[in-house]
């Protein structure tokens, strides 16, 4: 089975999130084939889960000072600082047999593509429900999923490098007193490709590995494609009407 592979490079937060959503709409209508997209964030960004409070989770002043985007996702889950990583998104109608209809099971099947992809880089990893992938007990990848109009959208990250101090300057913690301990905890619980492979790892090689990983695990053929004119136009509408609005980003 042939799927589309989109390599959209690095974009700002509103562009990234509106593209994922536009792809989901067209895939859901059958107007675009099932799609895997690999991308990055420039400037760096913090995304928060659908149900999180923006000002509760993110230090907006620090974001402005450091030129870091902030955005609310349409998917649940936690706040993520996107800097040195590859982000993937996968979109496919629910009415097919490759990805289980059951959400819990579908995370496992989709995340297996990441596990295979990491294997291509020589990293042995394991899926841990609901949505984590771990290497030697430490998290290297997290994902989040939504279902709209009988279509699956799952997106997630694979960490290339981490800057925990920077992350904690952007994300608010409930108590400054325990901040040092939290930083230590995260350093103990989170890893990256650079950390586990003890070498520099490029965005491109991670993209190549993930594409191979999804092809293997899902038994599909990925064909490089482009966003259609209609998808780009819809993404612009979604960006303007949702992601660029105060109402959306500050709604909780």
């Amino acid at each position: 089975m042939k799927w589309r592979l989109l390599l959209t490079g690095h974009n700002d937060a509103t562009t990234n999130m509106s593209i994922d959503e536009a792809i989901m709409v067209f895939v859901g209508q059958g107007a675009s084939p099932p799609t895997i997209r690999l991308y990055g964030w420039s400037p760096p960004a913090v995304s928060i889960g659908y149900f999180q409070g923006l000002e509760e989770e993110v230090n907006l002043q620090v974001c402005k000072d450091l030129n870091i985007d902030y955005i609310r996702r349409i998917t649940g889950g936690g706040a993520v600082f996107h800097e040195s990583e590859v982000t993937y998104s996968l979109s496919i109608p629910e009415a097919q047999l490759l990805i289980p209809h059951n959400i819990l099971e579908s995370y496992k099947v989709i995340c297996q593509g990441i596990v295979e992809g990491l294997g291509e880089l020589g990293v042995i990893s394991k899926f841990v429900p609901l949505n984590d992938i771990i290497v030697e007990g430490k998290k290297i990848s997290g994902s989040a999923q939504t279902r709209r109009n009988r279509t699956i959208l799952q997106h997630g990250t694979v960490l290339i490098d981490t800057d925990v101090e920077k992350m904690f300057s952007i994300l608010k913690v409930s108590s400054e007193k325990i901040k040092d301990k939290l930083i230590k905890d995260v350093k103990e619980r989170v890893t990256s490709l650079k950390n586990t492979l003890s070498r520099e790892v490029s965005f491109q090689e991670v993209c190549d590995a993930l594409a191979k990983g999804f092809e293997k695990s899902l038994d599909i053929e990925l064909e490089k494609g482009e966003l259609t004119e209609s998808e780009l136009a819809l993404a612009e509408d979604i960006k303007r009407e949702r992601y660029e609005t105060h109402n959306w980003n500050h709604r909780r």
Partner: peptide, 12 residues
């Protein structure tokens, strides 16, 4: 009431 957090509810 406002219920916020890093959980998942479908449909959101």
């Amino acid at each position: 009431v406002q219920i916020k957090g890093d959980f998942f509810i479908h449909p959101e």
